[in-house]
Amino acid sequence: MNKTWNNKAWFMVLPVLLLVAFNAVIPLMTVVNYSVQETFGNNLFFFEGVKWFREVLHSDRFHDSLLRQLFFTGTILAIEIPLGVIIALAMPRQGIWVPVCLVLMALPLLVPWNVVGAMWNIFALPDIGLMGYSINALGIDFNFTRQPVSAWFTVIIMDVWHWTSLVVLLAYAGLRSIPDAYYQAARIDSASAWAVFRYIQLPKMKRVLTIAVLLRFMDSFMIYTEPFVLTGGGPGNTTTILSIDLVKAALGEFNLGIAAAMSIIYFLMTLLVCWVFYSAMMRGEDE
């Protein structure tokens, strides 16, 4: 059999290859390059092997940032997911209030991140900010620029304000996809409101909630702008989460090797957790 071989079709793949190369592979390789070398300026580099990785993994500073990061992500997930579901359940299922509620819910999502940071910074100031002033007026000593607890409280409440809407919208979409017949069947069975939630709404929302947890995990694990504008990682290092620490190391201290190694560890951690999460939840789906 005679077949004409023509490999020109490979050229069709070229644009994609270039795009991926320039926006993913080359930047990533640059970081990998930095992570295994030492520089003293003037573009002089020396190969150092895994020295930076070892240093980062053994440094208390990295451990502390990681713990703060995990605390932040864990806390906001624990608040935003249940709160989002509760709000979605409370939203009207039909009528003229549906679009009103949806628009109100979507508003925080439309605010640029650094604006959110600046907004909450001013809002929480103890002397002129509405929230800061009010809390102090209640007799509670609140100053997020000086007290770690106040700073954490503000950072978390800011993230809850900004991102709970996303969970609400996803959960609401999940709820809306449940045919009315399910609710009727439950009423005919005299099922309680809790049973309706536990055996109909929750299972039917499972898929979108998986996506919500995943999105909120990734976003909160990589969050930078809002806490940076709000607290700058302070007071001291108390709200220095991974991304803020990374920028400090790379641009503040110009420790390129350390910062590059941190970046790669950070990236692999996000990837790993997402993968574990996703496969665990999808396995639960199959059973």
Partner: peptide, 17 residues
């Protein structure tokens, strides 16, 4: 409906998932 003794089956297959 809870006080009446009725049962209903729908066109869609409605069961607790």
């Amino acid at each position: 409906v809870q006080k009446r003794n009725v049962a209903m089956v729908y066109q869609q297959f409605i069961n607790y998932p």
